[in-house]
Simulated scan of single mutants.
Amino acid sequence: MTEFLKVGDGEIAYDVTGEGPLVVMVPGMGITRNTYRFLAPALAVAGYRVATMDLRGHGESSLGWDSYTRADTANDIVALIEHLGGPAVVVGHSFAGGAATITAARRPELVTALVEIGPFTRPQKPDLGGLLSNGHYRKGVTRLMGVALFRSTGLWKSYLDHAYPGVKPADWADYLAALENDLRRPGRMAVVSAMGASAPADAGAHLGGIRCPALVVMGTRDPDWADPRAEADGVVAGMPPGLGTVVMIDGAGHYPHAQHPEEVAAAMLAFLKEAARG
């Protein structure tokens, strides 16, 4: 059941399932909290209280915010953790991977562990060599740039199709149709464009400030990087020594939690079990 948390003049939509230690899951830009429709139930069954939230201007969250940066999303995550009674494990995908990093660094008492899935956490610049030699990467970057420039739901759908290489969820057609209907509402694609233009420098600057164990989950075929493993390793390298771990999901693109939820759940649960041991 959807609930709403007032943050400033806006509202953040979220839902909660399960009982146990709190896990807050935040989706990337251009999608809704429904992206965790497979992963959240698996964590709930494993004994966690799982809250999934919509980003500002996405899904059932309100429009009309002054800005849409990773730091803004981090503030929303903090507000939800405090509202639900933390601390919490924070899971952030893509854009929200950077927001989760900021949350963990700014409010270490509220975050017991950090999971970043396909995260945009470091400052980015196109890999010119990759653009020339890696067609999968070139197509992904081109589509993302087109979405930011033209605010087109058609280009976003094209990007999503490319970002799910190989296997797609069984409900793919229905999922995509619902997402398109959401994004065609007035103002929604403008928010996606604003988030896409928000550089992750604010998140990268906080990597060295986290104090909790961290897991970076990356698909081996993620089209957002010419070398997904190198990007995951780069995120971990920015953290204090010994805190970060990388898990690669073979064959997955930018949404491994939806393409291969069983593998991602297994990796997360093993990580959380180890993190709980201290």
Rank of each mutant, 00 (worst) to 15 (best):
E3D: 07
D9T: 13
D15A: 11
G18S: 09
G28M: 10
I31C: 06
F38G: 00
F38W: 08
F38R: 08
M53N: 01
D54F: 11
R56Q: 14
G57E: 02
H58E: 00
S67G: 14
T69K: 02
L80V: 10
P87S: 13
P87L: 05
V89T: 15
V91G: 09
G97E: 04
V111Y: 09
T112Y: 00
I117P: 01
G118T: 09
L128N: 12
L128M: 15
L131C: 07
L132C: 00
S133P: 02
S133L: 13
R138Q: 08
R138T: 01
R143T: 04
A148L: 03
T153Y: 01
W156N: 02
D161H: 11
H162G: 01
P169F: 02
L179G: 13
R185F: 03
A201D: 14
A203T: 06
H206V: 06
L207N: 09
R211E: 15
P213Q: 01
L215E: 08
L215V: 06
V216G: 07
V216E: 09
T220F: 13
T220K: 14
R221T: 02
A230F: 06
V235L: 01
V235K: 04
G238I: 05
P240Y: 15
P241D: 11
V246G: 13
I249N: 13
Y255G: 03
H257R: 09
H260L: 06
E263M: 08
A267Q: 08
M268R: 00
F271M: 01
G278L: 10
G278Q: 12
